[in-house]
């Protein structure tokens, strides 16, 4: 079972995820139309690029935009969740050993203590994200079962990972559960709302180009995000 999950199924999941992301990103940019979007992307590549970078950069900074500053609670839980969600899977020592073994390369690793901490933060933040969804009427009205499913898919690897880490009950069961949930996550990325892990950059870049070219950029005004 373990062999299968860390073997062929792992390769399929990571392959589908990476190839899926590449294809979808390519399709996104190919689908941009200067006349329908009413943005002269090609006529002003420099201004477009600058606008795109600015638009992404500002929103990656906690409290970097009016939007983030307006909602400090959301900003805190959002960034603490995403910090864990991005760093832990990529930089956990065990993941990198696994990666080295399977694909022959690894990324920067982080101390286990930090990884533990970030994982807990991510899980706790996820709980708050769910509570926020339930508590605030303006978020509740938007929420569907699909949103909870997405959260479940994103958080499951953390929960199972932590349970395995602390060896609660049967370690090998939680490990298998962790691998399965991780692979579900990988497979879900290109096909669900989780596509925002890359489409976030695409969409932000698009609006950045819009402002960088059409809505003030050519006038020399940098949008105060």
């Amino acid at each position: 079972m373990y062999e299968l999950l860390t073997g062929i199924i792992f390769y399929i999941s990571i392959g589908v995820c990476v190839v899926g992301m590449i294809i979808r990103t390519a399709l996104y940019f190919r689908g941009l139309a200067w006349n329908l979007d009413r943005v002269a992307y090609k006529a002003f590549p420099k201004q477009g690029f600058q606008g795109a970078v600015r638009s992404i950069y500002k929103w990656l900074l906690p409290f970097g935009t009016h939007g983030w500053r307006k909602q400090p609670f959301m900003t805190v839980i959002f960034f603490s969740f995403h910090l864990g969600a991005v760093l832990v899977p990529l930089c956990l020592l065990a993941h990198n050993i696994f990666l080295e073994e399977k694909l022959g390369f690894h990324l920067i690793t982080m101390p286990n203590l930090l990884a533990d901490f970030l994982s807990w933060v991510a899980v706790i933040s996820a709980v708050f994200i769910v509570l926020r969804r339930i508590a605030l009427p303006e978020v509740r009205i938007l929420t569907t079962w699909y949103d909870y499913l997405i959260i479940a898919i994103s958080v499951a690897p953390f929960i199972t990972g932590l349970l395995a880490r602390y060896e609660v009950g049967d370690y090998s069961f939680w490990l298998i559960a962790h691998i399965v949930s991780g692979e579900i996550l990988l497979l879900a990325i290109p096909f669900t709302k989780l596509s925002h892990v890359f489409l976030f950059f695409a969409s932000r870049a698009q609006l950045g180009m819009d402002y960088g070219i059409k809505r003030g950029g050519l006038k020399g005004t940098k949008m105060a995000w």
């Binding site: 399709l27 689908g31 941009l32 969804r133 303006e138 978020v139 709302k193 489409l199």
Partner: peptide
């Protein structure tokens, strides 16, 4: 096309626009 379709798809229903 992709701009609006993506917007509709990836909306996280976070309500920050409210």
């Amino acid at each position: 096309k992709s701009r609006i379709r993506t917007w509709l798809e990836i909306c996280a229903h976070c309500g920050m626009c409210a």
